[in-house]
Design a protein around this nucleic acid. Structure first.
Lengths: 177, 177
DNA sequence: AGAATCTCTTTGATTAGTCAAAGAGCTGTT
DNA sequence: AACAGCTCTTTGACTAATCAAAGAGATTCT
């Protein structure tokens, strides 16, 4: 069973990879995102490569293998289902669930997660509009939404997803309705 | 913040202490309960003593301080509230919630725990009948129940608490109704 | 090209938690 | 009193994850 540290590296790699697919993730970017010094990331990535979870090109960068991606998606699924659960069932504020889920995602078993999924009615997105990966296979990408930047003043829109998930920004959005 | 290892030692010490209060807990007993070799327990207990969470008499045994007891009760409260939550809200079997709660008790924040407590209606006992310690102060002991051993055949009783919480025994009790 | 800069890797040390095995301190028996 | 047998402590070693700082590659700028 992967440690929660390993799970966090894989999850972060998956997210970083979304920015520019087909490109390798730079070690510095990974280290920054994980909040560790570069040397730590190098050590960790070499270990992940030995476990077959990433492919690593020294001085080039790193990328998830198929196995690593599956694991990352599983972590992300737990994270997002838990976020939604905290909002819907326990009534927490959506500005605080990210931090809570960060801890819980490593402690919730598959059995409990399945019950949560069932209780929530097999949802497809979390409270911020991020897609919840399915239990098996890859998520299909949803291109039906537009960036706020291309929206025209005066027109009416429905917000589908909020990318900046810092508590401060979310509370600001809340105050604006 | 105490590590989950520290939390587990304190919780186990609290439970072991219940067997014979006023007596020190023997290192061997603690090591056995924690599933570690004796030397590991010695090392850990010395560290706990340095943090003021236990008082330790070499070759005598160990006992929780007031501070250690408070922490242990807090862990136990989380554990038992989570067990009840898993049964009542998520519909898990009472034979499996102990193992799940063992993980979750270290990941659930006070904020989430408060929501759980609220949702459950401030319960006083967990699914096995064990008392849930209050958020502040010590639990008051409940002497109103009798052991099954002193019950007389033919009479009718209500089961208030099940001490053996192994999955096998609980499933057996379940099958008997 | 040569130097400066940036990024990444290496090396050595640290902390938490653990085990194996050797050693020390009691306790009880003869 | 001497020994045997427990229990407990000590010591040395190991793993996972980390940092600091030195070293190596690659890029960019004159």
């Amino acid at each position: 069973m992967p440690s929660s540290t390993v799970e966090n590296y894989l999850k972060q790699l998956y997210l970083s990879q979304q920015d520019e697919p087909d490109k390798l993730v730079a070690m510095g970017k990974l280290a920054g995102a994980m909040g560790v010094v570069p040397g730590t990331a190098t050590t960790m990535v070499k270990a992940l490569a030995d476990s077959g979870l990433v492919s690593y090109e020294p001085r080039g960068g790193v990328r998830l293998t198929r196995a690593g991606e599956q694991l990352a998606l599983h972590v992300l699924r737990r994270h997002r289902l838990i976020e939604l659960f905290l909002v819907k069932v326990l009534g927490l504020d959506w500005s605080e669930v990210h931090v809570e889920a960060e801890e819980l995602e490593h402690a919730v078993s598959d059995k409990v997660l399945e019950k949560i999924d069932e209780l929530l009615g097999r949802p497809r997105v979390d409270p911020h509009g991020d897609p919840i990966p399915p239990a098996k296979g890859r998520p299909k990408i949803d291109k039906t939404h537009e960036s706020l930047a291309v929206c025209e003043p005066g027109k009416s829109y429905r917000v589908a997803r909020v990318v900046d998930q810092g508590p401060a920004f979310l509370q600001f959005v809340d105050r604006c309705g």
